[in-house]
């Protein structure tokens, strides 16, 4: 069995923990818990008959005061960069996080999750931003932890790229 360490990165309060909770426990809670440091979860997935165990590191979100600790990224095989569609700032953070990952680990599989798809009416991301993301050459998926939309697909997309 193959194990892989993957990380969820992004600005604070974009829904990283919620996405993992939805993915692993099929649960969603409106209450906001800020993640301190890191929380590790795991999920077994089956990619075309091959068992893969994802060790999912939920890393505390980045904001003006705390930055992602590079030590947590060590040994990471892939990562999901989460963007909150309703907050422009999370897009900027996502770009800088992606850049950091590239500098530290080189070219590894990355998936951009455009989260909070259930609140699409409030999205502030424009065509321009989406185009910028697309130019990075990594897959982008719209997800909603509340509805469970796109969550499995996102993790599976990443898992496929790891095999």
């Amino acid at each position: 069995m193959i194990q892989k360490k993957i990380c969820l990165l992004g600005a604070f309060s974009v829904g990283k923990t919620s996405l993992i909770q939805r993915y692993i426990n099929s649960l969603f809670s409106d209450r906001y818990h800020t993640t301190v440091g890191v929380k590790v979860d795991k999920k077994m997935v089956d990619v075309d008959g091959q068992a893969l165990m994802l060790m999912i590191w939920d890393i505390a979100g980045e904001d003006a005061f705390t930055s992602i600790k590079p030590a947590y990224l060590r040994g990471m095989s892939a990562c999901i960069v989460v963007i909150d569609g309703t907050r422009r700032n999370s897009f900027d953070v996502a770009l800088s996080v992606h850049e950091m990952v590239r500098q530290q680990l080189g070219e590894i599989p990355v998936v951009f999750a455009l989260n909070k798809a259930d609140l699409k009416g409030e999205w502030t991301l424009g065509e321009e931003q989406l185009r910028t993301l697309a130019q990075l050459g990594q897959p982008m998926l719209e997800t909603s932890a509340r509805l469970g939309q796109g969550v499995n697909e996102m993790f599976m997309a990443l898992a496929r790229r790891l095999c």
């Binding site: 194990q3 360490k5 440091g37 890191v38 929380k39 590790v40 979860d41 795991k42 165990m53 060790m55 590191w57 600790k69 030590a71 947590y72 060590r74």
Partner: peptide, 19 residues
């Protein structure tokens, strides 16, 4: 308990302390 997660958290704790 789940040794995979313990292992991950143990590493995370070490990283956390070091950092």
């Amino acid at each position: 308990k789940d040794p995979d997660m313990v292992s991950g958290m143990l590493t995370a704790i070490q990283d956390f302390v070091n950092d």
